[in-house]
Design a protein around this nucleic acid. Sequence first.
DNA 1: CGGTTCTTCTGTACCGATAAAGTAACCCCG
DNA 2: CGGGGTTACTTTATCGGTACAGAAGAACCG
Lengths: 378, 378
Amino acid sequence: MTFTPLGPVPATYPVPHGAEQGGVVVSRVTLQTIADRVGVSRMTVSNAFSRPDQLSAEMRRTILAAAADLGYVGPDPSARALARGTTGAVGVLLTESVGTAFLDPMAAAFFGAVAEELAPTGMAVVLLPSTGSEGTIPARDIPMDGALVYGCAGDYPAVDWLVKRKLPLVFVDGDPVEGASSVLLDERHGSRLGAQHLLDLGHRRIAILTMSKDATPRWAPDAASISSNFVARERQAGWVETLAGAGVTPIVMGVHDNVEPDVSEGARALLAGPDRPTAVLCFSDLMAAAVVHAAENAGLRVPEDLSVVGFDDSPLSRRLRPALTTVHQDFDAKGKAAAAALTSSISRFRAGVAPAPEQHRIPVDLVVRDSTAPPPST
Amino acid sequence: MTFTPLGPVPATYPVPHGAEQGGVVVSRVTLQTIADRVGVSRMTVSNAFSRPDQLSAEMRRTILAAAADLGYVGPDPSARALARGTTGAVGVLLTESVGTAFLDPMAAAFFGAVAEELAPTGMAVVLLPSTGSEGTIPARDIPMDGALVYGCAGDYPAVDWLVKRKLPLVFVDGDPVEGASSVLLDERHGSRLGAQHLLDLGHRRIAILTMSKDATPRWAPDAASISSNFVARERQAGWVETLAGAGVTPIVMGVHDNVEPDVSEGARALLAGPDRPTAVLCFSDLMAAAVVHAAENAGLRVPEDLSVVGFDDSPLSRRLRPALTTVHQDFDAKGKAAAAALTSSISRFRAGVAPAPEQHRIPVDLVVRDSTAPPPST
DNA sequence: CGGTTCTTCTGTACCGATAAAGTAACCCCG
DNA sequence: CGGGGTTACTTTATCGGTACAGAAGAACCG
């Protein structure tokens, strides 16, 4: 085998497309550069990096050495993405601004589980800001092989782009689009358990603290003002159904975002209102924590004067004093299921096989701790 | 203006590269397809999408209509990335497995802040699993315009790939490589404040609960076993320095990951050990919470029997009973600074200007709440 | 009315790779 | 010694765009 001797390399700062840099034009190192240097075809160099079984070990060593010498890192990811038709990344779309989504510990934990589960496949997760500006729309413009839609109402514009791109999609905690896979919690069952628990303890004056469409906390007696969010709707249905079965009509308070300070304000408003409840069913542990806090400030004891039920069983709920009675969800299982559904959907797509939507439903259960008790005996 | 009439479109499921699908070959819709249909050059169609000012409004409408009719969503992101040399995504590299990183509320909040800050520029954030398998290494293979390196030791292999790629980089909470920007907390000052606070209260038997290299909690009297992590090193230095100034030698306990259940085990071990301290300086609020919990279980009152100082001032610290004395850090400012440094670095790079590393140092301060008091008077 | 400047489109030349088919040399074997 | 099967490369044909330098005609201007 013959190849030209390896010379030194200009050590100038390379810029995209070999543009000018400090007066010196640096041509970027590509497969061809290496091919020329070693005296083989470009394809052989490509194979040295991407398909080692296609060439002799010796030639591969030679090529890799030349590449290292030239400061070549590996095939350009963008070019490879175009040529191969895959990018090695999947998107995650969030309804809320990405910032607030990460303030929700359950959401964060979910992403972690997804990313973790995806890591062995070598896929990275892209967070898609729903609201790109400057004319760029991430859901439309970012290269990706598929996407997870987390907690989004189906009518969301960004969801539309993803659908139009015909990307493999998995909907998590939200209404799925027809023909796509979904991973949902058994929300309604969970909220039924919570409501039944309070009824069993003897409570009759029960409040609900949940998500609403409005920007500021407000009384939300009507279904219309409940958040159009799938999760909020399902939980609401479970609570109202169960309470109605016992002839109880709940007081409903809605807040806009499941983050501080919204939840605290909502909790305060709820307890300050007329006809104070003896128990509160909360949309999340975060809200439950806020209610406990507000109760403390109002001189109420939990659970003696006020029972509080959370939702999620986040790490927070165990740390809190009193430890929170809450509905447990397995975010790890949720993340795993979502990641698995997505990868299977992507491989079907690549193989040119028709999509086969999967519907996963993650079970939940009630964890009774110290924040609930029978109502005061007044 | 003339153009051919618009006909119907085959409604078959398109696959990458116009591959075969159920026996029918569907050629993918590209700029050329639209150009042919409308009777203009491909370039004009490209301009209709990417540079509206380059053609008449009327022509643009016509083209967009034809595109919509053909089910064309927009220029293919991968192809565009190759041609333009930019991808619209920036990476975030984490030392830990991505999963555990998201269990740390401060880390999650930081990403949120970054993503939020980046959203207006239309950039998406890619989470890079440090350990891709199957021969793919995300740090090397994912298309991106720059990256944030979060809390990574400088000798990390994935960091190496990023450096070799000559991507614009910003190092956050970790040793920066030469020539790159960095965003760091004033860690040492923070830990000094915490230590001084305990000394001022009169404590002399003080323990440190921090990160170590070992997989299981253990006594870590020597500097060598402290985590090689920049943050751990800096905080340790601040604590030890300050305590040494008062002639106090701390008891040091190290845990491997800043997540449950590691921290709980470490806390338990610390309090169960000989010569129990009257105060503990913790690496994080999470650890502080674990110490408070462990103290409770051991029948100790906080702060009467044991003072606890956290680090981070996470939302948790305010909720906890007793509310935590801790070192406040502004993760929002950190995220904003990191995002800003990265975008500026990227635009320099694009312009072909030499990099101008920025060094940001985010201030911290001590927040005294209810978890610290003078030592028991025994 | 000739010259300059817009506006609006077109042509050419990449961007940096991969897939699939083709070719030449070699090896084994009856 | 000719045919089938490997191995090790090379050739050819894309992948789907964008940048930039024209070109042709309309508009402006003193």
